[in-house]
Design a protein around this nucleic acid. Structure first.
Lengths: 194, 194, 194, 194
DNA sequence: AATGAATGAGTATTCATTCAT
DNA sequence: TATGAATGAATACTCATTCAT
């Protein structure tokens, strides 16, 4: 016996959806993905809504505006990146161990891939023009330095942090993958190991 | 020997050139300025036209489109930055001299200021998604390395180049200016000086 | 005789009324305030809800829609303005007394200030396009005339009523306050006093 | 012989339009009409564009924004209304002639109909909240008074002007047309005729 | 050759209203 | 009963690009 399905003439195609707790939360994650994919400039309400499979109005319901959502996305991303740093260097005690850990980080073996770094650079650039985001980048930078300063002195920490930033950016930009051994050699010098 | 009238492929039928013959050229410069001021995302035909005090139609007359103009602006900027590198390191012979030169570069005493670096980061990020710009960044990066490789080995060159990139970015992002002596100390290690 | 429980058509099954039992009533007042502040065009569910410190859903719960609420707000305002007329002219018997009373009304010494008149004009204009509101304005206008006709003939009543309308509007629009003595002089002529 | 008209497969449905000088000018007129029809609140870009049979983008090309267009529409309307006053009272010399002229004006026999007055009231209300429009209303009001002051003293001018305003508004709001003779009688008193 | 007008696609945002809870 | 989430239509506005002049 066939149940229901009596085709009335103007049956609407199922309104569905509705009641989606955590949507707000999910939207922030989707926004991060869209930034990774299309850059800040290409991050539009429409694109996020489409990626999250959510109606357009939902975005401005949950967030004051695109700027608001963007800021939250960046804040979350920075927090995650800081957590990656934190946990990646958690067991490191000596400069020798740090050397391997930093090399791993640069080469993507630490929980943050090119995509994540790309978002980070988007954040950096956005922060250059938006003071509100400066706070996010500064908090993040302070956290990173603090992690490194558990093992090395502040000057070295600043050097390593800067080196990571630059090497990763060049790695992302280059077509050819740089050799791990070379990276290790450079990091070793900044760390004054050997 | 007749100097003029060398029949090149695009011989125009007596140019006449109403006035403002270097407008095309000037527009590229203005575009760089607008990118510095408003970022790639905020760089529109209208904004450039206004900044150059030129009618809107003039932009699409001289350039295929915005993308075209942007690419030319980035190309020119990269060439200029490469020239800054080139001339800044021109007289440098020893690692000791290089140490000072690099420190100067990072601290803005080399012909490239924060504004210039900001455009460079805009380019980096744009190149991440536009293969056409990848060529520009790679050419530039190769040129930078070549300059450094006149003085140090390739691995060190890559390290110094990356360190400059990272330190400058962090300097631009930070509110407080980092101390020159610290920078020098870090660079010294990568250069293996002292 | 039992006072309560008169079985009217809409006998509710023991109201219970959680709290804020006069919310509905209060919302109408808040709506009037919002109209005064932002005009009909700027009177939105959200704005009223915010001004009343009430959840958004509360508005559509208590009222069929915005139009409904607006109509009720205007109706109440017109009733209040009519009451102001009524009580302001209550003790007036002679044309001489009326002359002072009208002058006072125009100059805001009668319980209705510029803000109230602004809402009145919003109503007038809205009524121009919404027949439902026409009823409100006509009832109000009839009431006003009736008040005046207790003292003067219908033609004079219509004249005075019109004059009040026009003088108040010009007073509201003008930057400089008109002189009371002038107003009095004009009103005197329409009333044929002196 | 059949000329042209060789039907290619993807013939677009005629782009037409283009080159429409005076469009800007025409848009201001259309805006006035839309305000008359739908009120300020209902005057949207879309509505004006549709009424003028012009693409949406054309509006923001010619005007800074809706506010700009609205202001220009009101300014033009006020100028026209002032011109109506001016020419309507041009030949008037005596108070007796003025009496007839004012009565005609109120009853719509002077080149300004209900529709025009409705726009005027829209302007009044808009001016209440927008200082920029205050200038328009004040200029207009000054012009009206100046016209009347050629015939009567300033106080009387202010009274007549106010009376016209009020009587016209009530006439527009009322369903039944008031009797001309009554209007004349009231105006006569303010003018102190007979 | 040069440009101002024109246009259609796309942007963020606001909002009245519906509805599951 | 009351409400916060949800949604789709509508809003003003921006813009790259086209094109008649």
């Amino acid at each position: 016996m066939i149940t229901g399905a009596v085709a009335g003439p103007e049956r609407t195609p199922a309104p569905v959806r509705r009641h989606d707790p955590e949507r707000r939360d999910r939207l922030v994650d989707v926004a991060i993905e869209v930034i990774a994919e299309h850059g800040v400039a290409g991050t539009t309400h429409r694109r996020i809504a489409a990626a999250a499979d959510v109606p357009l109005g939902s975005l401005t319901y949950h967030f004051t505006g695109l700027e608001d959502l963007r800021a939250q996305a960046f804040t979350r991303h920075a927090a995650r990146m800081a957590a990656v740093y934190e946990s990646h260097f958690a067991g490191v005690r000596t400069r020798e161990e740090l050397l391997d850990a930093v090399t791993d980080l640069v080469h993507g073996n630490a929980g943050a891939d090119d995509r994540d770094w790309a978002v980070a650079y988007e954040l950096h650039l956005a922060a250059l023009r938006d003071p509100a985001l400066r706070e996010v980048t500064e908090t993040w930078m302070r956290a990173s330095r603090a992690v490194l300063e558990r093992i090395v002195d502040p000057v070295t920490a600043r050097g390593v942090d800067g080196l990571i930033e630059g090497l990763v950016m060049h790695k992302i930009l280059s077509t050819g993958e740089p050799r791990r051994e070379e990276t290790r050699q450079i990091v070793a010098r900044v760390l004054d190991v050997r």
